[in-house]
Design a protein around this nucleic acid. Structure first.
Lengths: 157, 157
DNA sequence: GCATAACCGACCGCTTCGGTAGGATTTAGA
DNA sequence: TCTAAATCCTACCGAAGCGGTCGGTTATGC
């Protein structure tokens, strides 16, 4: 599997928050019940989302979580990266702060890294899919009717 | 990381085989030495490639491995899948023999799976990158000069 | 028959995954 | 002011996979 259930659960959590109409916070317990996921495990995941600035929290009674930004402005690359850590196809890949991509094999060798072309393409494909999908799309997708749903899938592939 | 070093090592092994000019087999030991990878670990990986029909082996002295098909006909989706197992973004995804994609959450729920749209797009992106890259491209890429290399990366993203 | 090399299966230390447990802290409302 | 509700935090646990090693068996060329 490319991603673990951390991404799955976390995205479902975000969608659930995105479904709420008002701006009043929704408790993690109700999210856990709605999605039938273990509450104590969700606590770990939502902590990562909060540290990444994707959700806001209010403590105490009647507290809970809400989206830190409108759903249209939240893209899935930020969500998945917050949950799974840096997304790279291979361990030798790491982004520099300037947005470049480095392959650690290239430093110590004279000839080119034979796999770099492949992993660059994979990373490009994944990035395009994640960055091109907003939370608002998923919220809408999960509530609309089945026939219209089929058409949506290809639109950012 | 999306993939483990099994894919990395396995692809390097395939590239190394693709580099050989003639059709005489090359021993795993020489591949291990050239790529500086542990021989006994490579044995496990090449076994998967052999079972997938990607390489042929000849036993005994002066034996070794060679590509089962010309490098132009070997695409990376087959190689990576042989090494890593079925490639799906999430555990609830599994391909049917007919080529369809199933999400196991859809069977037991009335409303749609809120993450399916996202994972479909991711899988599409990864598949396109893997299936659109041939072993021959990687062999060529790893031997050609640095300036021409930069242009190649985007061509199948 | 000997060196070479593919084959095979068991094992091992380590990390991550998915999840649980127990408590500390904050806050709204009675 | 007390209490219930909720976030927050740390530690722990079994299972599985990863990366790798080892010892042995089989097949083959010289």
């Amino acid at each position: 599997m490319l991603f673990s259930t951390k991404a799955e659960y976390g995205v479902r959590l975000m969608v659930e928050l995105g479904r709420q109409p008002g701006s009043q916070p929704v408790s993690l317990g109700s999210v856990a019940e709605a999605e039938r996921l273990p509450l104590s495990y969700l606590e770990h995941l939502v902590a990562k989302l909060r540290k990444a600035g994707l959700v806001d929290s209010t403590r105490g009674a009647h507290g809970g979580y809400r989206l830190a930004k409108p759903a249209e402005e939240i893209t899935m690359d930020a969500v998945v990266e917050a949950l799974e850590g840096q997304i790279a196809p291979m361990e030798c890949f790491h982004d520099t702060p300037e947005g470049k991509v480095l392959c650690s094999h290239e430093a110590d060798g004279d000839h080119a890294c034979s796999t770099k072309l492949l992993w660059m393409r994979v990373q490009g494909g994944v990035n395009k899919a994640l960055a091109g999908t907003t939370l608002a799309e998923l919220v809408e997708f999960s509530t609309e009717s089945a026939p219209t749903r089929a058409a949506a899938i290809g639109s950012a592939a």
